[in-house]
Nucleic acid binder design. Structure first.
Lengths: 373, 373
DNA sequence: TTGAAAGCGCTACCAG
DNA sequence: CTGGTAGCGCTTTCAA
């Protein structure tokens, strides 16, 4: 049905082998004249090499597989963009699958993808704890690697593969310090299920940061909800109550949740940023576009995607690469001037001096390299 | 290096052929006992069938290829989400490539993809006119189809394949009528290069709608800029001038551009929705999240993605399926009450009665099925 | 129900 | 430099 190399060879009047060499041979051992002849024939016939056949003959494909939790989430689409960039640079095609935050599905997907024998598999998505599938996932990836495949992970910092870990802990902690520095004293946190590592890490690190700043976090102020926009929306009612009870600022563990909460607060008659300050995490594009601009913690997601495939392809050793993040202050957390209190100055680790600056759109705080955790 | 069917067969103590049948055979002609034996062996060895080999033996793969212009654009990520959904339902894996709005790259990508012999290729992305590559694209796609592949297109309504066309024309026109009905009289339009079909169609249809409502559009009020967020941002300065000169409302041909313009207007000291009304197109998620909510035209992108793969897989005939859109009025275009003028009532095609309703978040206008164009 | 063997389209090695 | 040809891993007749 389709045009095969055989047809091209015949059309060009050369042997099968010669045609192959002329078209894809790493050798240059083909007479100019024949090469041209073959290429012309291929073009005339609309021949495209059969990738699966090449894969089987060569023993390797030209694809990279990417597993994400959700496509329609800006967090993952930025990562995907980076992955696709890097793959393209390497002349590879990207195969993408969505695990929908289900460890079971994720496992199954990795199995399927492995069958396609990609050059590398990149798994992005927050680790779900406590699932029996975890061990199976590792096993699967290990088997893949054993058969010559390369693996790299984004944000699953406890598996035996090269891993790019967004610094959730450091980011959330520093965010807490920044907000404290801005004069906020009473906080609430909106988070997802603790089984979602990113959610738990950010939540606890934020609380730690608060403690470090000499502030507390009332247990009643930690609102568990769905790890999504609608979760944030649903939390709004409770937040409104808390605001009335004196809470001044909320940290939602993702921007998506924070933006949901923002809508909900408005619906409840509160003015985000005025009646209740709000901060998120990830610094997705929308964070800079909502009003008031959402204070957040930025991770270079696109770059992480790039680096993940580069690392995998280059056969990087297992180990965690901490991806530094930076706090981005926007109008949703205006400085809170209290006549009584003196302006706060926070000293971290007895060294880094965190100053809360504020710019029009993006005001990055102190650097976040390494283990500030 | 990797575990092969051969290994499994040996481990299970049966023949190669039997192992194959037990694992993937469409037949059920394997004794229960052997089947179990083989499956156990496969599990023990961590065997995964070699997809390229299966592809070559069977003559068909289990992938669907998707070509988009940009991943990191919500318009395309919604479509991608739909495509992935449908593919998953069909037990297929999605291969995704980004053409970056370059016809040349798109062509090259389709060629490469074709080599992978996917079951179907779905091409999304607004057609770029006037490029010589167009014919080549069609040729490539045609060759692919000739070799048994299925093709479907999203929003490229003039190629000989099953196509899902967002009703840009009808949507923009109806948006114009709605805005006129709201009392706006002086407009500006922010658009991209006319070579981008979606941009041109929306722009001209909007002008047509205005004309239909008895309003004009000053040529000086059509601002050509980059077909992106930053393009919208860049147009803001000009928009501010126009607003001062009496322009009341702006239509940006995409939400992404409109949101960029919104930021820019704010920076210029104007209040979007108050000093200048603003409307976009696509109804991406962010449209409902910015403040004021952005009036837009909604297309069921995710569903379109689903349908595109379903159509391709089921071998739908060439032809255009018009995807109806609906106008979504939000706070960025508040009704404009003018003491003098009587409330407008617009009659379309002498039949449909368009009423501008306004809800909290989503107020859909009259239906948009078929050829209202 | 099973095993043997013929391909699938291509690459790469081995002689010429 | 070129043509034969042996695989690559799997599916699928064809006999047994």
């Amino acid at each position: 049905m389709a045009v095969t190399l055989h047809d091209v060879a015949r059309e060009a009047g050369v042997s099968y082998a010669t045609a192959s060499r002329a078209l894809n041979g790493s050798d240059r051992n083909v007479r100019q004249e024949n090469a041209v002849r073959v290429q012309a024939a291929a073009a005339r016939l609309g021949y495209v090499p059969h990738a699966p056949a090449q894969a089987i003959a060569r023993g390797s494909t030209n694809t990279v597989a990417l597993v994400v939790s959700d496509v329609d989430d800006p967090y993952f689409s930025m990562i995907a963009a980076g992955v696709i960039d890097a793959a393209e640079d390497a002349g590879l095609i990207v195969t993408m699958a969505v695990a929908d935050r289900s460890p079971g599905l994720e496992l199954q997907i990795v199995r399927t993808l492995r069958g396609h024998r990609p050059r590398a598999i990149v798994v992005a998505g927050s680790r779900i704890d406590g699932s029996g599938e975890r061990a199976s996932l590792v096993e699967e990836l290990e088997a893949y690697r054993a058969s010559g495949g390369r693996v790299s992970l984004i944000s699953q910092p406890d598996l035996p593969f090269p891993t790019f870990a967004i610094d959730n802990t450091g980011g959330a902690r520093r965010l807490a310090l920044e907000l404290a520095g801005l004069g906020y004293q009473r906080f609430a946190v909106v988070h997802g299920d603790d089984a979602i590592r990113a959610s738990r890490d950010r939540r606890t690190a934020f609380a730690d940061g608060l403690r470090e700043a000499g502030l507390g976090l009332d247990p009643g102020c930690e609102i568990a909800t769905d790890f999504s926009r609608s979760g944030g929306l649903a939390a709004a009612e409770r937040l409104a109550e808390l605001a009335r009870a004196g809470v001044e600022a909320v940290f939602a563990v993702t921007d998506v949740m924070a933006i949901g909460a923002m809508s909900g607060l408005r619906a409840a008659g509160l003015r985000p940023g005025v009646d209740l300050a709000l901060a998120g995490f990830d610094d997705i594009e929308a964070a800079g576009e909502v009003t008031p601009g959402l204070t957040s913690v930025r991770a270079p997601l696109r770059e992480v995607g790039r680096r993940a495939v580069e690392a995998a392809l280059s056969g990087a050793p297992a180990g965690v690469v901490d991806i530094p993040v930076e706090v981005v202050l926007r109008d949703s957390t205006p400085p809170r001037h209290r006549g009584a209190d003196p302006p706060r100055t926070v000293v971290v680790n007895g060294a880094t001096h965190l100053t809360a600056r504020k710019g029009h759109d993006v005001a990055a705080s102190s650097q976040a390299h390494g283990h500030v955790t």
